[in-house]
């Protein structure tokens, strides 16, 4: 795989990991019926961390990050996000969701609304921000993802890469403390992957706490402070990217890395 190298262009001055805990997952388990998808997950994420989660398909990586904003329910163990424990209490769930941004593989923009309306909807209805102010914020983030001129168009008129950048901007408009990325570039054409990754790198440079399920190992090397390898619903190995790629410990990791980097 010919990975673009980002190392030379990443500004690390604001990437600082604090002692403050953003997400704490302890002994978390999840089943789909009888199928044990997530097994004894323990994970502590500090504010400012950039974590890339890798692993073969079906290893539970997406399911794990979807548990963090309760798109999936866990059956045992504890998940505490930003000091709030996720239980079946709907109020807490909505509170966590408004603090945690999520970017999906298939963008999931609202096709019946313009780009601007996509961005202002949640601030207006969830945060009760006045419309004018919400639109100003939206334009600010559209500038940031470099597509302010698309504000009045509908999602169907944009390219995949542009749609994904809109989706990132939509999450940012809620001023989230944590961002989750669920395979954000997997549905994109190769030439569009870079524009989305550039946006994510920019976010990382600003010190955002990020968890990304991703297959771009170049991206992981450039911005992640930790890479987590999952297989069969378990965290198999985690390390800083330098050691993770050059000196993997477990057999599963070695095998996985040889498969994705080998060709």
């Amino acid at each position: 795989m010919s990975e673009p190298s980002y190392d030379h262009q990443v500004d690390r001055s604001h990437m600082q990991v604090s002692d403050e805990i953003a997400i704490q997952i302890s002994q978390m388990n999840k089943w789909y019926g009888q199928f044990h998808v997530l097994r004894d997950i323990n994970l502590t994420v500090h504010r400012g961390e950039r974590i890339v989660i890798a692993g073969p398909s079906g290893s539970g990586k997406s399911t794990m990050i979807r548990c963090i904003n309760r798109l999936e329910e866990h059956q045992s163990g504890k998940i505490i996000v930003d000091g709030i424990e996720l239980t079946s209490d709907l109020k807490n769930i909505d509170k966590v969701r408004s603090e945690v941004g999520m970017v999906f593989q298939h963008f999931n923009l609202f096709p019946h609304l313009t780009i601007l309306e996509n961005l202002t909807l949640a601030p207006i209805w969830v945060r009760k921000v006045p419309k004018r102010e919400a639109e100003e914020t939206a334009m600010y983030y559209l500038e940031k993802v470099k597509i302010p001129e698309q504000a009045q168009k509908y999602p169907g008129q944009l390219s995949g890469g542009q749609q994904q950048r809109v989706a990132i901007a939509r999450s940012l408009c809620m001023k989230p403390k944590i961002m989750l990325f669920d395979e954000p570039t997997s549905a994109l054409d190769p030439e569009m992957i870079k524009e989305v990754l550039d946006t994510m790198i920019q976010l990382a440079e600003e010190g955002m706490t990020m968890l990304c399920v991703a297959h771009e190992m170049g991206f992981a090397q450039a911005v992640a402070n930790r890479v987590i390898f999952m297989a069969d619903g378990q965290i198999v190995e985690q390390n800083n990217p330098h050691d993770f790629f050059r000196n993997p410990q477990s057999e599963r990791t070695k095998q996985f890395l040889s498969q994705i980097l080998g060709h």
């Binding site: 969701r97 999906f104 999931n108 209805w125």
Partner: peptide, 30 residues
């Protein structure tokens, strides 16, 4: 409607009735 529309509405913190009124129903009715 794709599941993703519900998930996106949920992930943004919209409650059930908001999601129905603003996201789901306008598309389903159309």
């Amino acid at each position: 409607l794709p599941r993703g529309q519900y998930e996106a509405a949920d992930a943004l913190g919209l409650d059930y009735w908001q999601a129905q009124r603003l996201i789901i129903m306008p598309q389903a009715l159309k």
